[in-house]
C-alpha cells in the first residue's frame, strides 16, 4: 500500500515537473516582452541582462503612439475584425442552414463548389483578389480587407455540421405554425447552433486580428494599416530599439489576450469542436 502510494506521488511529481518545464518555455517569452517594454534602451542592452527595470518606463508606450499612428492601427484592426466576424458568422450560418435543412435542386453541386475552396491554399486566390481590389479602386481601404473575409467555405462547412445535428421535429412544428425558413432559421435554429456560431466567431476574430499577408498587400498606407502590418513596418524603422518594439508588440496582442482570458472556455471548446469532427 505504502509503495503504491509512493509510486503515485512520484508519478504525479514527474507529470508536474514536465508540465512546469513546458509552461516556463511558454510563458518566459511573454514575460520578457513585458519586462523589456518597461526598460530604458540602456537597460535593454545591458550585459548581463537587467531582469527588472530600475523604474518602469511607461513612456515607451507613449512613444509608440508618437512614432506611429498606433491608435489608428488599433481602430482599423478593431473595425475590420468586428465587421468580418459578425458578417461572416451571419452569412455562413444562413448558407449553412439552407445546405443542411432545405432540399433544393443543385444543392450537392453548389456545396461541392464551396468545398473546393476549402481544398485550395490561400495563395492561389491572392493575385486575382488583388487585381479585383485594384479594379474596384479599393486599395488602402478597410473594405479591401473586410469584403473577401465575409465569405467563408470553412465557416459554411462548420456550421452546416451543426445544423445537420439538430432534430427534424423542431422545424416541422414551426412550419405547421406557418413559419417560413428565415423565421425558423432565426428563431429556432440559430439559438440551438450557438456553440458552432461562437466557435466560428472566435476563429474569425483571431484570424482577422492576427492576419499579416493580405492586409499588407492591399493596405500599405498608414491610414488603413492593421496592427500586424504596423508592427512589421515598425521593425524596419526602429530595428534595434527593443523596448519600443516590445511595447508595440504587447499592445498589439493585449486585446486578444483579454478576450481569451474572458472567453477561455469558449476558445478552447471552439477549437476542440472544429478539430475533433
Amino acid at each position: 500500500m505504502e509503495r503504491a502510494r509512493q509510486l503515485v506521488t512520484s508519478k504525479t511529481f514527474l507529470i508536474h515537473f514536465i508540465l512546469i518545464l513546458g509552461s516556463v518555455a511558454m510563458v518566459v517569452p511573454f514575460l520578457w516582452m513585458i519586462l523589456t517594454s518597461l526598460k530604458t534602451y540602456a537597460e535593454s542592452i545591458h550585459v548581463p541582462p537587467v531582469i527588472f527595470p530600475d523604474k518602469f518606463q511607461w513612456g515607451n508606450y507613449k512613444e509608440i503612439f508618437e512614432l506611429l499612428p498606433f491608435f489608428k492601427f488599433m481602430l482599423n484592426t478593431l473595425i475590420i475584425t468586428i465587421v468580418r466576424t459578425v458578417g461572416q458568422v451571419f452569412l455562413c450560418s444562413l448558407a449553412a442552414y439552407a445546405f443542411a435543412r432545405i432540399e433544393f435542386p443543385g444543392r450537392n453541386f453548389l456545396f461541392l463548389l464551396a468545398l473546393a475552396v476549402l481544398m485550395v491554399p490561400g495563395q492561389v486566390f491572392l493575385l486575382p483578389q488583388y487585381m479585383i481590389m485594384v479594379k474596384l479602386g479599393w486599395l488602402n481601404t478597410l473594405q479591401a480587407v473586410i469584403v473577401p473575409g465575409l465569405f467563408s467555405a470553412f465557416g459554411t462547412f462548420l456550421l452546416r455540421q451543426f445544423f445537420m445535428g439538430l432534430p427534424k421535429e423542431l422545424e416541422e412544428a414551426a412550419r405547421l405554425d406557418g413559419c417560413n425558413h428565415f423565421q425558423i432559421y432565426w428563431k429556432i435554429m440559430l439559438p440551438l447552433a450557438k456553440p458552432g456560431l461562437v466557435a466560428l466567431g472566435i476563429f474569425t476574430t483571431l484570424w482577422s486580428w492576427n492576419e499579416l499577408m493580405w492586409p499588407m498587400i492591399v493596405n500599405s498606407s498608414p491610414e488603413s494599416m492593421t496592427l500586424s502590418v504596423g508592427l512589421s513596418s515598425l521593425q524596419g524603422q526602429y530595428l534595434t530599439n527593443y523596448p519600443i518594439l516590445m511595447a508595440g508588440s504587447f499592445l498589439a496582442i493585449l486585446p486578444m489576450l483579454v478576450l481569451f482570458i474572458i472567453l477561455q472556455k469558449q476558445f478552447i471548446e471552439g477549437i476542440a469542436v472544429t478539430g475533433g469532427k
Binding site: 511558454m26 510563458v27 511573454f30 516582452m33 483571431l206 486580428w209 492576427n210 499579416l212 496592427l227 500586424s228 508592427l231 512589421s232 508588440s249 504587447f250 498589439a252 496582442i253 486578444m256 489576450l257 478576450l259 481569451f260 476558445f267 477549437i271
Partner: peptide, 9 residues
C-alpha cells in the same frame, strides 16, 4: 497563449 498571439508579435 501562443495560439492567440499575433505571429508578427
Amino acid at each position: 497563449l501562443p495560439v492567440i498571439t499575433m505571429p508578427a508579435a
